[in-house]
């Protein structure tokens, strides 16, 4: 029940910090959309909304650190719709499994992303003395 359209953290972060931040900012937007599916599956549907709010703040912080934040692509509304439609077609059991998978994939994405950014920032600090 892995959602193939959700991004993994590392592939886009092999090169420089800018590329890494770009990947994370775009990835976060995709996960923000995916959390909409969690609202129907969650016992407390205010949590997915809070997650989206914090993701928005994080994307702003990331963009502030970027040289070219305008290059971060925003998902179109039809792309958003497609992502949610793919999930909506599933039966109830698969929807639940997909929700679990989104949570797992999102957690891994965040942990990997912050670890990678930490490596880049520490390396830069070291270079700058």
């Amino acid at each position: 029940h892995q959602v193939s359209s959700l991004p993994a953290a590392l592939p886009g972060c092999k090169s420089n910090k800018e590329a890494c931040l770009h990947w994370v900012a775009e990835g976060l937007q995709t996960y923000m959309v995916a959390t909409k599916h969690l609202e129907s599956q969650s016992a407390d549907n205010s949590l997915p909304a809070n997650i989206r709010y914090l993701c928005g703040l994080l994307i702003s912080q990331i963009k502030q650190q970027m040289k070219k934040p305008e290059k971060v692509r925003v998902l179109t509304s039809s792309e958003e719709e497609q992502l949610l439609k793919d999930i909506d077609r599933l039966d109830a059991f698969s929807k639940r499994m997909t929700a679990l998978s989104i949570l797992d994939q999102f957690r891994a994405f965040l942990s990997d992303s912050v670890r990678k950014i930490r490596q880049k920032e520490k390396a830069k600090q070291k270079r700058n003395g």
């Binding site: 949590l47 997650i51 703040l57 912080q61 930490r118 920032e121």
Partner: peptide, 21 residues
Amino acid sequence: LLCDSSIWGAIISLIDGLKLQ
């Protein structure tokens, strides 16, 4: 530093606290 932002941990906490029906 961006990696020191508390938002990363806050989002992970919410993910961990999210209980599915």
